[in-house]
Design a protein around this nucleic acid. Structure first.
Lengths: 185, 185, 185, 185
DNA sequence: AATGAATGAGTGTTCATTCAT
DNA sequence: AATGAATGAACACTCATTCAT
């Protein structure tokens, strides 16, 4: 199963979305298509599993944010994790973000997002973070903002993650109405 | 030609991306496939044309931003335009954003983006906007942030564009390092 | 009409058989498809007319063979004409030979061949040419032999028509059972 | 695979070149198009395979020519083989000759021709065959002459292969500058 | 006579999925 | 459980031909 997922990941990285088909994945994984269908009920399930595999790494790392003393630091931690994670296998990450938006994939993925939302919820109710009118909306906004910015940086070929993180932080804190120390007009 | 584009738009809105095929578009437009190919050299060209049709409305409206006295107001104007435009035909807009990311589409679309980048450039060099290290990168970041937020709002079914705009403004100003008057901690 | 035929000829020469379609021919000729169909009832008719145009030049020149004193000289004359004619627009000639073999084309072309067969008949009954068991078969054989050799020379990029003619003569005389003076073992 | 090739062969024989399409071949072979594409990467590959199937019989038989004591006899043997082979399935043979001339097919087929060229080379360097200025050119000329004559005989509906062979022999020996015993003027 | 937009059957090819072994 | 040959609906695209203007 891991072999199959990794084969799919590599195809995405080297040949792109349109080259991802079940026959090729099976061949590259060194198994038969039949076996692939024994593990995954369909192509979408394969993609979902791949997204979950990547997300689980992110979630595992993200949990460290809770150790941070302040909400701001926790957010900075989250941003750093997200940037690092996205830059680990940038092409793969961008393509999976892309696929994640497709309705049937998103539906399947919804439950997996719960722990992440939970984590964010706990961070955003810290005392130093201004209360948001709609916390849930805020969480989704933040996730999307971070994703959009990191993807865009990827696409432009940026490699300096520090500079990127700094920009994301400014944006996120701007969104939340936190006046960051760095940029005071 | 307009009929064909509108047919494509309606298919996207009612049946989604995977239902968009040249034969169906032609049929829904009440023309033959051959006619479709007389107007558009291929499927991608059709999508590109559809994106351009939608974008042209946005660009036309966006130009009004230059009338605004300050950079901040110009940005607010732009955000309002983008939000309104995206909420006009939300499903269509989101799917086109999606398609726009596909390499062959993006390549074809690149020249069309120039006037928009130009416009943003002129806004971002206003005196009340802090100078950015890399203006071009900033423009793309902002475009992506705005798009991501509005798409996400769409997906969640938000309809109140005022609330959305306010959130986007905070984010954009945060990104640029502008301390907005509204939220001072 | 001549313009249309010439346009077709040029397409064949520059883009090959598969690029020859009525719409392109019309466009290159600077007329509408409708006009093309006013002159030629269909695509095949266009090809037939083009073959006839080329053949008529050959026939006109070939008639000079009758002035030759001996049968051998008349044949040499014919061979020279065929080689020269085929090498005038070699690519076109080869492709038309190719098309000529297609059943519907050949059927249409049959009557046009009559004067040529007649001419050959008169040459082959000269006294210095050994009588053939089946004159008609011989004529067709000779035509095909000549065509095959000149086409092959073309394909190999031969440009020296003298050398080619000499080879063809040997072959033709060999076929007819004429012992040529040049090669006596 | 053999079934598919035979289906293609029969379509060519009964309905001609223009009726040869992958869907029909699959249907006649009693398999799905998908299966056809599992064995042959494309339509051209199918045609190439069919030509090779037919040619392989010819080559196998042609090798017997090397047993002949003299070059002349070896050539006679070759001619007999070619004539017999072409007359086995005359329509098919003629259409395949036709297709063989198409650039993409010829390219694919080039390596297959090597053993045949080799064989001819060995025959043409026998002592009783006059040395040719360009052996390679001579081989191609002879192949084309033989093909053209046998195809033409086919087209005229000749069935007596002895008469045909005799005519081809005369031509080939004429080409090579061999004075055949049969026709001395 | 000329135009050229419109037609639509036809073609090569792909690929998710199934199922007999 | 594993295999992989087989399936066939689906799709992008072409082009000879027609016909209203």
């Amino acid at each position: 199963m891991a072999t199959i997922l990794e084969a799919a990941a590599r195809i995405l990285e080297t040949q792109g979305l349109q080259a991802l088909n079940t026959n090729l994945v099976a061949q590259r994984a060194g198994v038969s298509v039949g076996s692939l269908y024994q593990y995954f009920p369909g192509k979408d399930a394969l993609i979902v599993a791949l997204i979950q595999r990547e997300r689980s790494l992110l979630l595992a790392e993200a949990e460290g944010a809770l150790q941070e003393p302040t909400g701001r630091n926790a957010l900075r931690y989250m941003i750093a994790v997200a940037a690092r994670e996205q830059l680990r296998r940038p092409i793969l990450a961008r393509l999976l973000d892309f696929e994640e938006a497709r309705a049937p994939i998103a539906k399947e993925l919804a439950p997996t997002m719960a722990p992440f939302v939970d984590l964010m919820q706990r961070i955003m109710t810290r005392k130093d973070i201004p209360p948001q009118a709609d916390t849930d909306a805020a969480i989704h906004d933040l996730a999307n903002i971070m994703r959009a910015m990191v993807d865009a940086a990827n696409e432009r070929g940026e490699t300096n993650s520090k500079v990127l993180e700094e920009r994301v932080e400014r944006t996120v804190f701007g969104y939340l109405g936190v006046v960051s120390r760095t940029h005071r007009a």
